[in-house]
Nucleic acid binder design. Structure first.
Lengths: 168, 168
DNA sequence: GTGTAAAAAGATATATTATAACATTTTAGG
DNA sequence: CCTAAAATGTTATAATATATCTTTTTACAC
């Protein structure tokens, strides 16, 4: 089991997350002969500003501000598509939003824990679950190609806040 | 493990699926003092015409044809919302589409196997997986409320077709 | 049966998310 | 530098979903 759950849900030096993500991204681009352009890097950086998923139009607004000129939707979606293809970000289907991938090199199919309160998203790779999904698919003669596993609930912090305010 | 996978992927007397689904829906409405209106029943019936997920606007078109008058999106979405709340249908996030639930009474959180070729969707409840998801959440101090588990791949039939045409 | 309040549906407008199509600019490599 | 490919800009529009207000239908009290 591999997860960034602790990092997501506890105070930490977040600049290290961002730098690590950008470094990984550059490595992967180099390895795949892909170009990490200004727009793409900006989108990746924005998605790493927090451990929350951002929608395409939130990214658009922030990009426009960053570049001090209007950025149109296709530009944003192109960058998203590129980063998705390289495995540097994920699409969170239940939110129509996107988030930086903390372990882009792992081939693992991942599981997301989405806080419905604060919007934070932690990612987890769970080999036992993946194995069971594979064998359940096989039993059904279903040829598994990809998966989207999204858990919704409360992150530790939001749960604590909820508990505390209940006691008011 | 409970699944309608065989039913979905093999020829069967589909009218029995539809009738069973409508009967279950009526029971559940009676139990919950909810109204199964014409529109709602029509949407449920349309979603049970096949074992494929339908988008809201596909439903709109089919409803309009069925009632021989234009049906506006809010009407469709209201029916969808109602059926979702009663657990009679599911939303497939990765498709932005909806499908009839084959076991609406079970409290189980379910898993979908989506054929990317023909669009069929089989549903499965897998207690071991659900247990692991719960315990993985607990380990991460994540309070699990709901889940969306969507597997994409090839259903048995489409896989067979693909194999066969490979040999041409 | 009629009146009434609540629920549902109709109607219109618009928000949100995503893509198509074509023009222009930037980039890597010859 | 020149060129082809890649990336981005620009404009328009498709696809999905919701807000708001009006009208109709329904359950049920009387």
């Amino acid at each position: 089991m591999l997860t960034n759950s602790r990092l997501v849900h506890q105070p930490h030096d977040h600049s290290r997350c961002i730098n690590a993500a950008l470094a990984r991204a550059n490595d992967i681009c180099a390895a795949k002969n892909a170009r990490m352009t200004t727009t793409r890097e900006a989108v990746l950086r924005l998605l790493w500003q927090s451990h929350k998923a951002l929608g395409a139009y939130q990214l658009q607004a922030q990009l426009s501000e960053l570049f001090n000129k209007p950025i149109a939707p296709p530009t944003v979606y192109r960058a998203i598509e590129f980063l998705l293809e390289l495995g540097l970000i994920h699409r969170i289907h239940s939110l129509n939003a996107y988030i930086g991938c903390p372990f882009p090199n792992s081939e693992h199919s991942n599981l997301f824990m989405i806080c419905t309160q604060c919007g934070s998203v932690a990612e987890m790779t769970h080999n036992t679950i993946n194995g069971l999904l594979q064998s359940a698919s096989e039993k059904a003669n279903f040829t598994l190609k990809s998966q989207s596993l999204e858990l919704s609930g409360l992150c530790p912090q939001c749960f604590d806040h909820a508990e505390t305010s209940d006691n008011d």
